[in-house]
Design a protein around this nucleic acid. Structure first.
Lengths: 235, 235
DNA sequence: AACCGCAAACTGGTCTGACCAAACGGCGCT
DNA sequence: AGCGCCGTTTGGTCAGACCAGTTTGCGGTT
């Protein structure tokens, strides 16, 4: 008696299920584009009509959004929960920067852990690119550029952690509360006149631990890095 | 400034909206089949792909159901609320037949009212056919046949009242509680040995009032008919 | 007269190829 | 560096074809 439960499912449902799995597995990340419909035709060996029907199902489920001429976008399933309710943005809150850093500490630690554990070789290659680019920016460039490069590097780590919830939360944290994060860096820069030199070494530690596929070391290094940053803010 | 709100809507959404309107207007009734996809292609001047997408939207909204090879079915939107919760069917209840008749009195009255007011000429023609068929059955045929013909006639009236809620409630009443209704007729038949002769005259009154497009008279006749039937049960 | 079985006619599911419109991306220009 | 143009890419729609189930009507049986 072979398992035949899925025999009755339509082609579109099978495709939709595969795409959903890809999203949950972290192969497709919120905010990134899906393959084009014509690419999916080759990928799933189905007609464009069936591919389109599958995308319709996913769109209806709130997982993706599709724009005429602009491809299909994987949505952040947590975004609706972080919509601004009142009129004034939450980022104005005094305690928010600290809360953000507290969250970052655990998030970055876990992201680094899973990234070291589960990232594919091509993904590590991309991470290496981003690391080198960030290193350049830290030697020359405005504070804003440095901060952006810094965030991009950390986001890149989260992007490759293959955990949908971790990616979603990190994205929201970085996109909605960038100003709060940036404020920390700027404040510190003004106080000391330059980017703290320890940060470069900490970044290198995280990077090397991930490249060496040492999850424990990556987590430790990432958490220490954020803890250090938080310390700068409080001082 | 012309209203251009609907300009951005896709072809499928426009079709889905039109079908939804047809359902609400009573042109398409719960339990009945929609036009085939190929017919809709002509009807709405769109491709079958767009028609299918529209049907997908309606199916997702829970308005219709589509079966491979068997066409699309308009669902009864109230049915989920009448699902059996416990194990024993509700129809076993003692008071149910009376409750059903109480409901029928107002439902049939309103259905006859709206049918006289809003039914199209072709629909009245169908009603006439059904009335004649019922008359034949009442002269010869088993009690079960008479009861079925009776119900079909009343259902036909509700079917053409162009009110989605009225149709939905009537359908549920007739399909789920047919036994309770039939019990009344059978009990009366056993007691008197034949179908009460007043019923024939009452049916004729209802029929003629509707054909004359006299809503008030139709409602009165229908209510009196059910009231009379209820009286038989209590005696 | 009611019942059953089979074949033709629908009807929904899928595929293919084509065309249009919106968005994207590289190019030269200022 | 910023801007505008134009070819390319991508989603939206359409038309026609074929396959897979369902429904229906017919002829034969009981």
């Amino acid at each position: 008696m072979v398992d035949q439960r899925r025999k009755a499912e339509s082609v579109a449902q099978q495709i939709a299920l595969k795409v959903q799995r890809a999203i949950v597995e972290g192969e497709i990340r919120p905010g990134h584009k899906l393959a084009s419909q014509r690419q999916m035709v080759d990928q799933y060996q189905a007609s464009r009509a069936s591919v389109r029907e599958a995308l319709g199902l996913l769109q209806n489920a709130g997982l993706i959004e599709t724009r005429h001429g602009g491809g299909s976008l994987c949505l952040n399933i947590l975004a609706p929960f972080f919509e601004e309710v009142g009129e004034e943005p939450l980022a104005e809150s005094q305690s928010l920067p600290i809360q953000v850093l507290e969250m970052r500490e655990v998030l970055e630690g876990e992201a680094a852990f899973f990234c070291a554990q589960k990232a594919s070789d091509p993904e590590l290659s991309l991470l290496k690119q981003e690391y080198l680019r960030m290193s350049q920016r830290h030697q020359g460039g405005t504070t804003l550029h440095q901060a952006k490069a810094d965030l991009t590097f950390h986001m890149q780590i989260a992007d490759h952690c293959h955990n949908l919830l971790l990616i979603s939360i990190s994205q929201i944290l970085y996109s909605r509360y960038f100003n709060a994060i940036y404020a920390v860096l700027l404040q510190n820069f003004k106080k000391r006149g330059r980017y703290p030199e320890q940060i470069g070494a900490q970044h290198q530690q995280i990077f090397q631990a991930i490249m060496a596929r040492d999850p424990q070391a990556a987590r430790t290094a990432a958490r220490e890095h954020i803890a250090y940053t938080r310390g700068l803010l409080l001082s």
